[in-house]
Nucleic acid binder design. Structure first.
Length: 433
RNA sequence: GGAGAGGUGGCAGAGUGGUUUAACGCGCACGCCUGGAAAGCGUGAAUACUGUAAAAGGUAUCGGGGGUUCGAAUCCCCCCCUCUCCGCCA
């Protein structure tokens, strides 16, 4: 959520920055300002009435203390209808506020000044490239062929169980998936300074609102059950990413500045509706309704946000380097960035069998956009309460990493060579049928 | 799931309709005092919104919501959480 104070003070600046995204959102600024104005007007009025009521009530109390019953009763009669006026104005203020906030929640973040201007993925500049496309003395197979010949994934039976877009890993496929998860968690938690956590896979709506998935993109997620009525959670949703539970861990807290930076890594499955995804990438493992991912989350002081983003990308890159994969890092342009992000780097790994790059990581600094939505603050050294920057990045997403790995390291005989750092986990050097 | 006891500021703990703008205490910050400390004395200290050039000021917050009243920490209703015991379960 943007800072209403910034919208008030610099509405034209906010509109311009919003327009560099998909466009259209800037149109709501005037409406927000009008509701905000109305709210403050009603508030000023109702609060002075409340002040009056408090004053009169004290006076009545004093009169009763002095046994001046008549005077007290006279004053009671005078203030009798004050309550109704207050209630009516209160409602106006509350209505204006909830109207304003409903619009604010649908407003995306402002892009950081360093983000390239652009309309779509085609305008994303390449930041750097690691390695080269490998050469093969044979025609590299696609992961679908490899998975079938090596019996890594049973596509047909997965469809029987859950329909298209779901995977049944088998034998070495299941082991490879597990090995990759454990390898990544170990690396991030021992060498990169992240604390490993394992969160719930279902969360209440407020967590999705907190990171910006709700209310605007509600139809993309799986609602599964009514949550505890008790806890006032509303419906529970399957998490689309570990970002949803993990970034919300400290929601509604006031952190001490010494607690920062907070760094978490977490493995979770991710569930996505991917509405209308039929077509490109439907076959195989590129786009599925459930996939595994190791996610990185940071909560940091605002002044550290962008340095930490660079470090996070480097942490994710390290995985691909150790897996011996060729990849490129791109900087998303204003028009291609996600809702909550102020700046995003994507990492795309080369998949020889596809002849294309696959997005396996997306690292974003959301600045204080999410912290505001979840009311997460910290008390700075100067005693001020401030919103921290919250960053999230995949480190990395599975399924696609799996694809790149088997396609890159496939051999002429149809086997797949396991990268050195993964061998202690998989307990083999080579995957054969 | 059942029964009971609780929920008040950083902590602890009074307060059953009106000088409570939440007592007393501990802890905290600053000042005085001291050679330095302790003790003592004094002052200050929550969060949000609003307001202002900045202040001052105003409103709300005693687990949450609603109600009664001129006025609610206090009375009424609903809900939540914590603790203890019992049951059930992996």
């Amino acid at each position: 959520m943007l800072d209403i104070a910034v919208i008030r003070k610099q509405p034209e600046f906010v509109k311009e920055r919003l327009a560099t995204r998909h466009g259209g959102d800037e149109a709501h600024i005037n409406e927000i300002l009008a509701l905000d104005e109305h709210r403050r007007k009603a508030l000023a009025e109702v609060e002075s009435l409340k002040a009056l009521r408090n004053k009169v009530s004290r006076e009545i109390g004093a009169l009763l203390g002095q046994k001046k019953l008549d005077e007290a009763n006279a004053m009671k009669a005078e203030t009798k209808n004050l309550g109704d006026k207050i209630a009516a104005l209160d409602k106006q203020a509350v209505d204006a506020e909830s109207g304003r906030d409903a619009l604010m929640l649908r407003l995306p973040n402002l892009p950081h000044g360093s983000v390239p201007l652009g309309k779509s993925a085609e305008d994303n500049p390449e930041v750097r490239v690691h390695g080269e496309k490998p050469d093969y003395t044979f025609q590299p197979k696609s992961h679908v062929e490899l998975c079938e010949s090596l019996k890594l994934v049973d596509f047909a039976r997965a469809t029987k169980l859950s329909g298209s877009g779901f995977l049944l890993y088998t034998n070495w496929g299941a082991k490879l998936e597990r090995a990759l998860i454990q390898f990544m968690l170990d690396l991030h938690s021992t060498e990169h300074g992240y604390t490993e956590v394992s969160p719930p896979f279902m969360v209440g709506e407020q967590c999705l609102v907190g990171v910006g998935q709700f209310p605007k993109f509600k139809d993309q997620y799986y609602g599964v059950a009514e949550g505890d009525v008790a806890a006032n959670l509303g419906k529970l949703y399957l998490i689309p990413t570990a970002e949803t539970p993990v970034a919300n861990i400290h929601r509604e807290e006031l952190l001490k500045v010494e607690q920062l930076p907070i760094q978490y890594c977490a493995y979770t499955p991710c569930f996505r509706g991917e509405a209308g995804a039929a077509g490109v990438g439907t076959r195989g493992m590129i786009r599925v309704h459930q996939f595994d991912k190791v996610e990185l989350i940071k909560v940091v002081k605002p002044e550290a946000g962008y340095d930490e983003l660079e470090r996070m990308v480097a942490n994710a890159e390290r995985i691909l380097q150790l897996m011996g994969l060729h990849y490129r890092v791109i900087s998303l342009c204003t028009g291609d960035m996600g809702f909550g992000s102020a700046k995003t780097y994507d990492i795309e790994v080369w998949a020889p069998g596809q002849g294309s790059y696959l997005e396996v990581s997306s690292c974003s600094n959301c600045e204080d956009f999410q912290a505001r939505r979840m009311n997460l603050r910290f008390k700075d050294a100067d005693g001020q309460n401030k919103f921290p920057h919250i960053l999230n990045g995949s480190g990395t997403a599975l399924a696609r990493l799996f694809v790149a790995l088997v396609e890159t390291h496939q051999q002429a005989d149809g086997s797949v060579l396991v990268p050195e750092p993964l061998r202690p986990y998989l307990k083999t050097e080579r995957i054969t049928p």
